Amino acid sequence: MNVILYLSVALIAIAFFILVIYLVKTLKTVQGMLQSLTKTIEGIEKQMNEIGTETTQLLHKTNAVADDVQKKVESLNAVFDAVKQVGATVQTFNDSLTKKLTANEQKVAQVVQWGNALLEIWEKWKEKKNK
């Protein structure tokens, strides 16, 4: 019976040894996977830092472009105001010119009427002279 007990203990020790070997292999595999995961996470952290830096630079450039656009819009507003003033001046000039032409139109009409009257008198005088 002692032999069976020794054999049983030896068999249990061998099984435990095999179990330990498989556990060691499994733990080494898990360790390798964790190291790979750690490297991947470190790479992702580095990429995230780079993305953050690039995003900050892009934001600064966007703000600079927005400021530039705002300045250009303000300068265009000044140009549009100047064009508007020129348009108002031209309109005032046209109105003034139209008024003067209207006033002179009556004088021209009178001159034409006088001219027609003089031509009629001239033709009548010519007719009298010819008779």
Rank of each mutant, 00 (worst) to 15 (best):
Q91Y: 01
A103I: 07
K129A: 08
K39M: 08
I51N: 09
A103D: 03
I44D: 04
T26F: 15
I18L: 06
K61R: 04
T56P: 01
A64M: 07
E50M: 14
A88K: 13
V9F: 09
T55C: 00
V112E: 07
L5M: 13
I51G: 05
L58E: 05
W114P: 00
E123F: 07
Q85I: 10
N94M: 10
T98G: 11
I51C: 01
N63Y: 10
G87S: 01
K61M: 02
H60N: 06
F16E: 04
L97A: 06
M1L: 13
N104Y: 02
N77T: 02
T55G: 02
A10S: 14
D68A: 12
Q35W: 08
V86W: 09
W114K: 15
A66M: 03
L5W: 08
L101E: 05
Y6Q: 15
S75N: 15
Q85V: 06
E123K: 11
Q85P: 00
K124E: 13
K71M: 03
K84E: 12
W122G: 09
M48R: 11
T98A: 10
L119I: 06
N77Y: 01
K129L: 01
T40K: 15
L58Y: 01
A109F: 04
A109H: 11
T26M: 12
T89I: 00
I51R: 04
N63M: 13
I121C: 07
I18Q: 05
L97K: 05
F17P: 01
L7S: 12
L11T: 14
V112F: 06
K71F: 03
L11C: 04
L58I: 03
I12L: 08
F17I: 03
K107L: 04
D68H: 08
E42W: 06
W125T: 11
K39G: 08
I14W: 00
Y22S: 11
A109M: 04
L34K: 07
